[in-house]
Design a protein around this nucleic acid. Structure first.
Lengths: 341, 341
DNA sequence: CATGCCTGCTCAATCGATGAAGCAACAATT
DNA sequence: AATTGTTGCTTCATCGATTGAGCAGGCATG
């Protein structure tokens, strides 16, 4: 490093020398418990003044090494490319800070290997608690944390070994499906079986949403065709490809679709454009997740907005209660009124 | 805490005892330089096996305290609510990890007070370098870092004390404006002065974009009306309010608009909807920033996509070169072809 | 004036990992 | 036989902050 400037950072020993006192007095004053340590207000003031003059910044590594609790809380998150996870991260930071915790967040791109590495790194940084958001293998992370005596929680996708906070995917999907069917009745004059697209068949949320999807069809007396359930993954390209393939099928494509994330919706919308299905208002869509621009797309797309503040409130309640038994808390999502085109 | 489990975490001393050796041998083996320290392969293997059995995780705080370099790199970012910052954060994490650095990121909501606190906290965590993204007062942060002997860089918004990497806002805005004017000529049969909306008049990027906006008008021989320049802030509501107020003005509203961010575009689109301007295809829009759903909005909205990988590549080049002089590096943004409605 | 108590500090051990210095055992060289 | 070198470890100081224990001086009480 071509670092010239100030080679060494100011420590409490430097401040002690400048103030003509001991390092322990400086420490006591700067971490606020100088009253307990019976330091005079006069000395405290002097030390604080000198610390400010020198631009002193605590060495957290040293401080944490000595203290029993780190006050660090970690979160791993799959992506930052949609409003749902963006909002989770922003709300999490906010709520953590409000509780005097230092949040560290890392993005693991739905890659199991990266998840494990990230968890190990966070444990090295002595996190007190680790939130695994949308993890592909949450139980693996819980095990790693347990081995280090660290609490862990699952968010968005549930695990079997730690408490989990998730959306009520079943109820949300059922209501969303119901609305799409009602809309198609209203706009197309009849209720026809819908297409389900996006997500991973293996993940709990997708499975629950498909269950809600089926239930709503049953409630309204509409059949469900298995070839219309396309859990093709999350990426936009995968949705496009799945629709292309489904279109080659002999059966006509449904006019109503349940899209399992905004990311998949991107692919669906591109496909609709490409295949010329957009201009006529014949398509009736719903999306499990919310994005402000989707509202503006103008096709009266129904959306489910997951209750991020509600979910994170539950997460912090669990943390504060010290719970570690594997329960699954389901938070009802919000289903705003769709804007007609 | 109701923590029962494993009260203490495994340390190298525990491992040393189990292996019947010394802590320094364990340390040498686990951090990989046991060849240099002349530890036998036999002992190394034994220690590694025991460490794995015990699920040992390094105490980073202790390790960092001892080492000279932390390998931690910090970034502060204003929001996670749009694709631009989401992509910055994701790319940053990736590139940092690829270089053996540990990224920590925190969101400061365009709040100067929070920015300063976040910077101080990051300094406490011994970051080697701090990237201030879209900071409201980047120079303040540079000063704090300099006082601690820590490198800092500005991203997205430039400062005067540290190197800055930003988009070429002038050229981007000029080209975007040119395209909007051309589109309006094509669609409406004539080129009329555009409206500029969004951003803060006080920030460098907005000022440069307004300069590009004016220049493009001048290039094409179109006048610019001052009452059409509305640097009303970034929030969607602010854009809506500004348009409401502008509409009360005697002068007719322009049919072409340059919108200064996707967040502002949200407000603009809502306003267009509300005021009934959307159904006729009379509006010609452009947006400085990119979002996949905006493409799908179907009004042939032109967009500028800032070159995030390009900008971050420059950032890491600057870090690696050790540069600390206040230069401003401008990265040309990408302007994809707009999809016609 | 001896004793206890309070005030306002300082001393020194400690957290866990690291690495320079040192040391014992043995082999190789002169 | 004496010296030098090599191998394979251990010992111990150190990073900076924290905190229990201790200590000097002043004051009050019996």
């Amino acid at each position: 490093m071509t670092q010239v400037k100030q080679a060494k950072r100011t420590t409490i020993y430097d401040l002690a020398e400048l103030a003509g006192t001991s390092a322990s007095a400086v420490s006591a004053v700067l971490n606020g418990n100088w009253k307990k340590r019976r330091i005079s207000a006069q000395l405290a003031e002097k030390i604080i003044r000198i610390a400010e003059e020198q631009g002193y910044a605590l060495n957290m590594q040293a401080s944490l090494l000595r203290r029993e609790k780190s006050h660090i809380i970690g979160m791993i998150v799959p992506k930052y490319d949609n409003r749902y996870f963006g909002s989770i991260v922003e709300t999490f930071e906010d709520m953590a800070r409000a509780r005097g915790l230092f949040p560290i967040i890392t993005c693991t791109r739905r890659d199991p290997q990266l998840e494990v590495e990230a968890a190990r790194t966070m444990l090295s940084y002595q996190v007190e608690c680790l939130i695994a958001t949308g993890a592909t293998d949450p139980d693996r992370i819980t095990e790693m944390c347990a081995a280090a005596g660290v609490r862990s929680l699952n968010l968005d996708l549930p695990g079997t070994l730690a408490p989990s906070v998730i959306s009520d995917n079943f109820a949300g999907a059922r209501e969303l499906t119901r609305r799409i069917l009602k809309n198609s009745e209203q706009r197309l004059g009849k209720m026809e079986p819908l297409l389900f697209i996006g997500g991973r068949g293996s993940d709990h949320n997708t499975a629950e949403r498909i269950r809600g999807f089926r239930e709503a069809h049953a409630d309204l007396g509409v059949a469900v065709y298995e070839e219309n359930i396309l859990a093709c993954g999350y990426a936009p390209e995968k949705a496009e490809k799945a629709l292309d393939e489904r279109a080659l099928d002999g059966n006509a494509l449904p006019k109503g679709m349940f899209v399992n994330s905004t990311i998949s919706l991107e692919g669906v919308m591109r496909w609709i454009r490409r295949s010329g299905h957009l201009d006529d208002r014949s398509l009736v869509l719903g999306c499990f997740d919310w994005d402000p621009f989707v509202t503006l797309l103008g096709n009266g797309i129904e959306m489910v907005r997951q209750d991020v503040p509600g979910m994170l409130t539950k997460v912090f309640e669990l943390i504060e209660s010290g719970a570690s038994k594997p329960i699954v808390i389901q938070v009802p999502p919000l289903i705003p009124q769709a804007q007609e085109a």
